[in-house]
Design a protein around this nucleic acid. Structure first.
Lengths: 144, 144
DNA sequence: CGTAATCTCTAGTAAGTCGATAGAGATTGA
DNA sequence: TCAATCTCTATCGACTTACTAGAGATTACG
């Protein structure tokens, strides 16, 4: 039932980029450091996210990665599907030999809907604004 | 994001037992046949479900498995957790090195809630009654 | 009592996936 | 030109998963 570590890294990386404003690229090494991700592994992940059209990059000195589109238009669900494949917890293949009136396909459909509801509704802009709220709340507590 | 094949088999097996009324035990071989599950594998699974208190069994000739409690009191979520472990898609360990104001823990909490909402609300009695509805609907169509 | 039919328990294992690493190559800025 | 960076391909060990084997324990029944 768990998502892969790779997906978790991917989400963190996109979030990291979404939380920096402006179009200046961010170096892989910086993201890796801030988000506690093995750098060489992160390279693969970022490259894959670029293939998916979520990120863009610039090579060479002062190069790096940046969002290919606004954070409001990237959802968590999209990233998960691109890295881990379909989100449904049910196995597609395993349906063979099952009676045609099995209640499970319908049931898994409901589960998938519930999941997709949250995953596809949440954009990285949402995550960033939540993060800002948390930060200010923490600063407030800090000052008391 | 997928559940294990083992869990899927476990759900089917419990459903199979829930759909037979009366206290007479059902043989492993029968369940395996009807639900298209490798028999030796199913033996392990049923034994594990018995450990969990969901099933009971009788050995020897005319032995077999049966529900240890009413189908109304067994939820899909319980079975999944007992076979596959915690349901949350987020990794517990992977939190180290993350900034304390990360928005992800809260987000995963929401996802888990959405999932648990469906999984813990659905009992095997629900699945059986759905199944009966599907059957009659099909029979109805058949007769037309 | 004895035998066949079942469940029960302990190992084991082949294949695949996952997380990660290595290293050479291409591109860019200064 | 040189250093910094992304890019691409290959590889690898550890772990998990799905499944199998086989002997043992228990029960119904004649």
């Amino acid at each position: 039932m768990e998502i892969s570590v790779k997906s978790e890294y991917a989400l963190r990386a996109v979030f990291d980029l979404a939380s920096r404003e402006g179009p200046q690229p961010t170096k892989i090494a910086e993201i890796a450091g801030r988000q506690a991700i093995p750098q060489k592994f992160l390279e693969l992940i970022l490259s894959q996210l670029k293939q998916g059209g979520f990120l863009a990059s610039r090579r060479g000195a002062e190069g790096g990665y940046f969002l290919a589109k606004p954070a409001e238009t990237i959802t968590v669900g999209e990233i998960l599907r691109h890295i881990d494949g379909p989100i449904s917890p049910a196995r597609r293949q395993l349906r063979e030999g099952l009676p045609p009136d099995s209640p499970f396909p319908e049931f898994w459909g409901e589960v998938e809907e519930a999941l997709a509801g949250v995953l596809d509704r949440t954009t990285f802009a949402d995550l960033v604004s939540r993060w800002r709220e948390n930060s200010t709340r923490q600063v407030a507590n800090w000052q008391i």
